[in-house]
Simulated scan of single mutants.
Amino acid sequence: MHAGSGESPVIMSGNIIISVQVLKNATKNFAKESKLGHGGFGVVYKGQLDDGTKIAVKRMESGAISNKALDEFESEISVLTKVRHRHLVSLLGYSTEGLERILVYEYMPQGALSRHLFHWKNLKLEPLSWKMRLNIALDVARGMEYLHTLAHQSFIHRDLKSSNILLVE
């Protein structure tokens, strides 16, 4: 993957380290119009790398950098670099330059399930059919089964909710 201002991501022990400058370029300097939402420890932005790859960038808020938040950041990197499943979002890389703590994920174009369940009228979205709801529930169950029992190491999610379930299409 080649990205921004002549800088390329660096691969270290299987994890992709992405420079803050590349992520600033991809998100238009973390512009308000690039904001997708607010996550557990920061703001999530939509971005696009120079090669056209669409990404979701979770940037830890500087005021949220506590020991607990740093532990969660490290834990998310640790878990998501060990698991790969079609029903789990992929961690593409991260940045830890200076005080920055940023996670980079594959972009999910339809956003969070909560948008489609609770805010579909305001967002002018089509309501989810019962068949689609059932398919989503089955996919979530398959992802949880993988994390809890089928992965090389078992992981417990602990925060399963509609705002943490992202839809591809």
Rank of each mutant, 00 (worst) to 15 (best):
L92V: 03
T81P: 00
E106Q: 05
Y146K: 00
E100P: 08
R86Y: 08
W120T: 13
S163H: 04
L147Q: 05
W120L: 11
R158Y: 15
V104Q: 10
W130D: 02
L91D: 04
L134R: 09
T149S: 13
Q110I: 00
H116F: 03
V140S: 08
A141I: 04
Y105S: 01
V83S: 10
K124A: 13
E100D: 14
K82N: 13
D139E: 13
W130F: 15
D139I: 14
K131F: 15
E106P: 01
I156S: 05
G98D: 15
E100G: 09
L128S: 11
K131P: 01
F118R: 10
L138W: 05
H157R: 01
I165M: 02
S162H: 03
R84H: 12
L99A: 14
N135L: 11
L123T: 13
S154D: 03
S129D: 04
I102Y: 09
G111M: 01
E126I: 15
E106V: 00
H119S: 11
Q153K: 14
G143L: 02
S90G: 07
Y146I: 00
P109F: 07
E97L: 13
L166F: 07
L113K: 05
F118A: 02
E169H: 13
W130H: 09
L167K: 02
D139W: 04
L125P: 10
L150T: 08
S95E: 04
L160Q: 04
S154Y: 06
K121S: 10
G93R: 10
L80K: 07
K131Y: 15
S95P: 06
V89I: 14
I165R: 02
K161R: 03
H85N: 11
L138F: 08
S114F: 11
M108Q: 05
K82V: 01
S90W: 13
Q110L: 09
H152L: 11
L167N: 03
Y94P: 08
L166T: 10
L138T: 15
D139F: 02
L88A: 10
S114W: 08
L123N: 09
I136M: 07
S162F: 02
L123C: 08
I165T: 04
F155A: 04
G111K: 00
E169A: 13
I165C: 01
L91W: 06
W120P: 04
G143F: 01
K161E: 00
E97R: 12
L88M: 09
L167R: 03
L167P: 03
W130Y: 14
S114P: 03
K161H: 08
H119L: 10
Y105Q: 02
F155E: 06
K131T: 15
H85M: 06
V89K: 06
I136K: 11
M144F: 04
G98S: 11
R158I: 00
V89A: 09
P127Y: 05
L160S: 03
R84M: 09
L99R: 11
L147Y: 06
L103A: 08
H116W: 09
A151W: 05
